[in-house]
Simulated assay, not measured.
Amino acid sequence: MSDNEPSEFRIGGEIGVQRLGFGAMQLPTGPGPAREAAIAVARRAVELGVTLIDTAHLYGWGANEELLAEALYPYPDDLLIATKVGVAPPNPPHEAAICGRPDFLRDQVEQGLRRLRVERLQLLQLHRIDPTVPLADQLGTLRELQAEGRIGHIGLSEVTVAELEEARQIIDVASVQNRYNLLDREHEAVLDACAAAGIAFLPWRPVHPAVSAATSEIAAVAAELGATAAQVSLAWLLHRSPVVLPIPGTGSISHLEENVAAARLRLSGDQWRRLDRIQPR
């Protein structure tokens, strides 16, 4: 970030979070030493000042939510755990599938409340739009749960600009979670729409897997800053727009600390322009 960029963002105009969050998807949820290590990573994220953690019912079919509750409950007052619903687990011979039926969404919300040990999900995102169910029915269900006090703010995931516009006719959209990074800018128009409306944009996969070997320009900027290519990629995202809230994930404390440190990087205007000119893959 540059010195005049905000380090915080208020989701839905209400929930203040540090802009660099943490994605919990990669945390192991099975028993034994791996679980203890995952709990340590989640706790270390909070110690480092992370106030936005992203999870989903899909991640371990609720096991990820349970892990975060075990690690962090009772939660710090400033911590936001955002979760997602709308994907049905596999039921052999059927595979996992998007499901936006009202009864199904309501049930997954209730499961999330129980697993996270809360009475209200402060940010609940629809993991995917179900093309077989009217959008008004899917979002209408979440709006009803919001009116009941079970949901605070509602977000979307993997949507187009047209879908975002349609959704905004039904609900107040607080966030959008689409894939986006320095080398993959397919959803650039969605980010621009979010920026124009003041909607939080949570890029998942904020660091492209190929970034460390991608271009000499990334390596050059990293060398100038004494940083890693991944840190430079995260700094570019934070510089891209004040609505961008990257959620890099890891199961390693050292990698977590490296990611969080990226929030302290300061890109010069020239460095950001050089990175911005890189052709996405």
Rank of each mutant, 00 (worst) to 15 (best):
D172C: 12
H153S: 13
A88T: 04
G12S: 11
A196M: 12
G32L: 08
G100T: 01
T160D: 12
S252V: 08
D137I: 02
S157Q: 03
L48F: 09
V161N: 08
V17E: 03
R264F: 10
R274S: 08
S175R: 06
A230N: 12
H208T: 04
A96T: 07
A71T: 06
E258Y: 09
L121R: 07
E95G: 11
L52V: 07
I253C: 11
E257V: 10
T250Y: 00
N181Q: 05
R143L: 15
L142K: 07
F9M: 08
R101N: 06
H255K: 14
A219M: 08
A214G: 11
W236D: 00
G12N: 10
F104Q: 02
E188V: 13
I170M: 09
L145V: 04
V87N: 00
P280W: 06
S254W: 10
L121E: 05
G269T: 13
H153V: 03
Q177C: 11
S2D: 13
R266Y: 07
L182Y: 01
P6C: 09
D103A: 15
T228Q: 04
A37R: 14
G100M: 01
L113Y: 09
P102V: 07
L202E: 12
E257I: 09
F9S: 01
E163Q: 15
L72E: 08
L116A: 06
C194H: 00
A230L: 01
V46N: 07
A147D: 14
G112L: 03
R19Y: 09
V46Q: 09
R205S: 15
G112F: 02
D103K: 13
